[in-house]
């Protein structure tokens, strides 16, 4: 589904990603872990097409097409979803209205008729139940005055509505208490199936108590320095990132 080859990218002339290689197949859950500043969130942003990042080298093949050539909205329409680390507030615009616009824009892109109000509401009800979110939250202006947990649940609700093929979740666990993590993880597990894939970006192992990954990748200094099965996450948790850092720094000096 997704094949990242030798991806280099940065911001304002500063190099952050220094040659990322990663392949994700349908049905898989991947986790990227790493210390602060290792480039995890940059990778998520580059994949979603955030404009202030500059790709200097490499390619990203998504469903047989070059992802980097697509506009951010077309990536979304093709099924790439980014759950934001810091969801944006838009005063005056309700989540409902926002989602109705998004769903119908995506349908239009795929040559489908727009959903009418009734069909849309039916779909919304269904997804609300799935991710366990309250109607009152959806009538409020998008993310405005939401708590951290509310914002993250709203992201998951949007993910349920848009049914992406590839969901990239950028530090979705940050700032959540354990109950909120459980609710968010449950929803993600419900949404995951053999046709889609999930890429989790996180600093901590605790999310992985609830979402079981197929692969764990450790990122450091702009590269994936280590990959392995889910047990790698536990090892990291135990030994801390310093152990990786030391390992790499020693290797590089040699």
């Amino acid at each position: 589904m997704l094949k990242i080859e030798n991806l280099h990218a940065g911001i304002e002339g500063k190099k952050i990603l220094k040659g990322i290689n990663l392949e994700i197949k349908a049905g898989e859950v991947h986790v990227i872990m790493g210390p602060n500043g290792s480039g995890k969130s940059t990778l998520a942003s580059v994949l979603a097409g955030r404009e202030n990042y500059e790709v200097t080298e490499g390619s990203v093949e998504y469903m047989g097409k070059e992802l980097l050539d697509m506009s951010p909205e077309d990536r979304a329409r093709e099924g790439v979803f980014l759950a934001f680390q810091y969801p944006v507030e838009i005063p005056g615009l309700s989540t409902t209205n926002f989602m109705k616009t998004a769903v119908n824009e995506i349908r239009k892109y795929h040559g489908q008729e727009p959903l009418d109000a009734v069909a849309f509401l039916r779909m919304m009800k269904e997804k609300m139940a799935l991710v366990n979110i309250d109607q009152s939250l959806l009538s409020r202006p998008l993310n405005e005055g939401f708590s951290g947990g509310e914002k993250k649940r709203n992201e998951i609700f949007q993910m349920a509505m848009l049914q992406p093929k590839l969901a990239i979740m950028d530090e979705t666990d940050s700032g959540l208490d354990i109950d909120a993590i459980r609710i968010v993880s449950d929803s993600v597990n419900k949404l995951h199936n053999k046709d889609n894939a999930v890429l989790l970006v996180t600093h901590y192992q605790r999310l992985l108590d609830y979402i079981i990954p197929d692969f764990v990748h450790v990122m450091y200094n702009g590269r994936i320095v280590k990959s392995g099965p889910k047990e790698l996450a536990l090892e990291l948790e135990e030994k801390g990132y310093d152990f990786i850092k030391n390992e790499i720094d020693v290797a590089e000096e040699a």
Partner: peptide, 29 residues
């Protein structure tokens, strides 16, 4: 905000529509 527009883009909404949504939200009251 660029970030507002990008957020909408990421949900499949093009820039023009995003601007309209934001403006209508702004003027709603």
């Amino acid at each position: 905000g660029e970030d507002q527009v990008f957020y909408c883009n990421q949900r499949g909404i093009d820039t023009e529509t995003a601007v309209a949504l934001i403006i209508n939200g702004f003027a709603k009251e």
